[in-house]
């Protein structure tokens, strides 16, 4: 099982990577939307991508739009993990094709609850 983690903060990438590997995932890290999109080509077998919103070069929302424009990534579940907490932003992300949404700060329990909702596999 493979997960992509997209966040410009090294600390956040570190925490999320640790959580996801505890849940049985191999992790691919990306530091912005463009970096993630470039890496996705070699990682089409990702089960899930955890995506921050505000990042340099390409933000998470634009990444979601770009990924959802390509049919080959349809099976990848996208979960926003962001400090954006306005309803308008949640609506925007979901309409663009994100499958779930977590507002920072997050815990492993929250990530796991959402993964259960999405029906993606995990190890406990």
């Amino acid at each position: 099982m493979k997960a992509m983690i997209v966040d410009d903060s090294g600390a956040t990438r570190f925490i999320l990577s640790k959580m996801m590997s505890e849940l049985g995932y191999d992790v691919v890290q990306a530091k912005d939307g463009q970096d993630a999109f470039d890496k996705l080509g070699d990682n089409k077998d990702c089960t899930i991508a955890l995506v921050d919103w505000n990042m340099p070069v390409m933000n998470g929302y634009d990444l979601v739009c770009k990924v959802r424009a390509e049919n080959e990534y349809n099976d990848i579940k996208i979960m926003m993990v962001t400090t954006e907490t306005e309803m308008t932003q949640v609506v925007k992300a979901i309409e663009a094709g994100a499958n779930e949404y977590i507002m920072k700060p997050f815990t492993k329990e929250m990530i796991l609850d959402k993964m259960k909702l999405l029906g993606v596999p995990f190890e406990e």
């Binding site: 979901i94 929250m110 909702l117």
Partner: peptide
């Protein structure tokens, strides 16, 4: 926000909730 983050599908948040301050 912490309670909302726990187990509530985003689709349902959008449809059935209104934001009131935080």
């Amino acid at each position: 926000q912490v309670e909302i983050n726990r187990g509530l599908p985003a689709q349902l948040l959008i449809k059935y909730f209104e934001k009131q301050g935080t």
